[in-house]
């Protein structure tokens, strides 16, 4: 899925994602190396909630990552699951990429910093977005991928610049 309007909306393809639920502590520090602060992305780990992290890895490496986490956290209460296939990931790029998202999410994109992740909603569904050097990356549930792509391309229509 690709749409080129006043910003570019592109399906990012398969992204390996592991949801890790664990409480902060020494075991978690050891397992993750760097534990990101609230709503931050540190390395390949995103802070999702006080006891939830999302870890990005190459799609093929997910099983290995889960094994690694389970080993590192053996004995500590935790849950590591593959969520790669349950999500759709879109990249929104271009100088006015934030305008596309501003139409869909009740989020102040002028204050969203690079490396910060924001969970909210896009239109009528849950979505998370973060800002990186090259633009914005958004993910949502896979069942609504077509809907979210529809939202993004509607918002990015040429002539709809804010």
């Amino acid at each position: 899925m690709l749409f080129e309007g006043f910003a570019k909306v592109a399906d990012a393809g398969p992204v390996g994602m592991v949801t890790l639920r664990a409480k902060p502590g020494a075991a978690l520090d050891a397992a993750l190396g760097t534990v990101p602060g609230h709503r931050q992305i540190a390395g390949n780990v995103a802070w999702m909630s006080p006891d939830e992290y999302l870890i990005f890895v190459p799609y093929a490496d997910v099983a290995a990552k889960i094994t690694e986490l389970d080993t590192a956290l053996a004995g500590a209460h935790h849950l590591a699951v593959d969520v790669s296939d349950s999500r759709a990931v879109f990249d929104i790029t271009g100088p006015k990429a934030a305008d596309v998202l501003s139409k869909l999410m009740p989020v102040d994109f002028r204050t969203l910093r690079e490396g910060e992740i924001r969970r909210s909603r896009a239109g009528q569904v849950a979505a998370a977005v973060w800002r990186h050097e090259g633009g914005y990356r958004l993910f949502c549930f896979r069942s609504v991928a077509r809907y979210v792509f529809g939202l993004l391309s509607h918002s990015a229509q040429p002539g709809s610049e804010i």
């Binding site: 969970r119 909210s120 909603r121």
Partner: peptide, 12 residues
Amino acid sequence: PHCGIRAEETEL
């Protein structure tokens, strides 16, 4: 109070 977001009602 968990994540620090000033959420609007539609997010709650």
